[in-house]
């Protein structure tokens, strides 16, 4: 096999690995900023960003994970941006006790600003934060606590619209 073919194969594999929701449910994977950018280009991807220091996040995440699992037409991407120390000692274990029906992610070690810009250029960084992307276009954004009674319907309606 030629070198360009190997490189192309590796690139394709990295893109496929970047597909949101791929992998084993109830597992937690690191999500580099480059993969966030790739996920945003896919159809209807619902990102939710949380951290252990965000009290609203901790309150709503158990129910939100269930709502997101049942959401039709949108792929859930839940990202924990707690510090690597907290991820290793608490948050990864905690989210696994909630038994999410899909893979969840953690922000790798590194500075905040490039990462939050990768998720959404217009986001100030306030948590909790959720955003719906479709093929690179931002459809909706939520900051602060979500209305769990309506969020699934709002997302599903957006994802049903012909584009």
């Amino acid at each position: 096999m030629s070198l360009p073919a190997i490189v192309a194969g590796l690139f394709l594999a990295s893109v496929l690995n970047g597909a949101p929701g791929s992998g084993k449910p109830n597992a937690t994977q690191p999500l580099p900023a480059a993969r966030v950018a790739a996920m945003k280009k896919q159809p209807c991807t619902f990102f939710h960003v949380w951290a252990t220091w965000c009290s609203i996040c901790l309150q709503e995440l158990p129910d939100l994970l269930k709502v997101m699992a049942a959401m039709k037409g949108a792929t859930p991407v839940v990202i924990d941006v707690s510090s690597p120390f907290v991820q290793a000692n608490f948050s990864k274990k905690w989210i696994q006790t909630l038994k999410p029906a899909f893979v969840t992610y953690v922000k790798p070690a590194g500075k905040d600003e490039p990462y939050l810009n990768a998720i959404d250029q217009e986001w100030s960084g306030a948590l909790p934060f959720s955003v719906l992307y479709h093929k690179g276009k931002r459809l909706m954004v939520w900051q602060g606590s979500l209305d769990l009674g309506t969020i699934a319907r709002e997302v599903e309606e957006q994802c049903k619209l012909p584009r």
Partner: peptide
Amino acid sequence: QTKAFGCTIKRTSKGKK
């Protein structure tokens, strides 16, 4: 201008945009 993570300011009405 710079950005960073932080806690949402808790307003009376929700900060939905």
